[in-house]
Amino acid sequence: MIRWIYFLILVLLAVVVQTSVVPVVWFRTPLGYVGPELLAAVAVFVALHVRSRVEAALAGWTLGFAIDLTLSGPGMGLASLLYMAASVGVYQLREAVFHERASLQFILSLLFCLFVYELWTLWGLLSGHLSRPVAGGQAVLAAGLAVYTAVLTPLVCRVLKPFQKLLIATPPGRGRR
C-alpha cells in the first residue's frame, strides 16, 4: 500500500528537481533539447513495487498530473491519463519478469516514455496543436527523451530503493516477491 504523504512529498521533490536541476543535463541536438524525465523513472519504480494494479494506476495518475501542472499550453489532463495507463502497463509486465534487474528497469522505462510521449505528440498532431513537421521533430525528441530516461532509471531506482518501505507499506505477514 502506498504511503501517500511520503509519496506526495516525493512527487513534489521530483517535480522541483525536474524543472530546476535536470535542465543542466539536457543536451542540444539539431532538433531541440533532449533530457531525462525523472517522474517517469519514479513511476516505473513505484509500478514495479506496489501491490495492486489500482495503486500503480493511482501513483501514475498523480505523477502525470504533476507533469500536467508544470506545463503550459493545451493538453491539460493528458499526461495524467497517459501516465496512469503506462503505469498499469508496467505493473502488468513486471509479473512476467524479475524486477530488480537494471536491464529490465531500462526496458520498462523506455517503453513507458515511448508510450507516454509518442502518444502525447500524436494527440498534439490530431488535435491540431502541432503541425506535421513539428510533430515529426517532437516524435524524434520524444524517442531521445525515452532513451535518456531509460538510461537513468536504474540509477533512480537504486536511489529510491532505501526509501521503498517508507513509500510503500508491506502488509503484515506477506513476504517480498
Binding site: V15, V16, S20, P23, W26, G32, E37, I67, G73
Partner: peptide, 14 residues
C-alpha cells in the same frame, strides 16, 4: 528564470 518545463519537448521557461 526559476525553472524549465518538466518535459524538454517545448522550449519554455518559468
Amino acid at each position: 528564470v526559476i525553472g524549465a518545463e518538466a518535459v524538454p519537448l517545448q522550449d519554455r521557461r518559468l
